[in-house]
Amino acid sequence: MEREVVPWDSPEPLSGPIGVPLVDLLDRVLATGVVVSGDLVIAIADVPLVRLSLHALLSSVNERVPAPWSDGGPL
């Protein structure tokens, strides 16, 4: 039951669902590597309560992005 993949370059708007499951997209994003940086403040009634400041690198381990510890570190 393989659904046909929706062509990307067709002029008319996207008709069917994109043929790629989200988990494959995430896998490719990790393989490429992504940096998420930003600030998040959780507030109630305009009163800031919680602050989350992110500078996160999310990537697969490869020669460009080595694991900080030697293979099989404390984790």
């Binding site: 996207l14 669902p17 994109i18 790629v20 499951p21 989200l22 988990v23 494959d24």
Partner: peptide
Amino acid sequence: GPLGSLLPR
């Protein structure tokens, strides 16, 4: 929906 599915079918 338009994004397809979360996991492969």
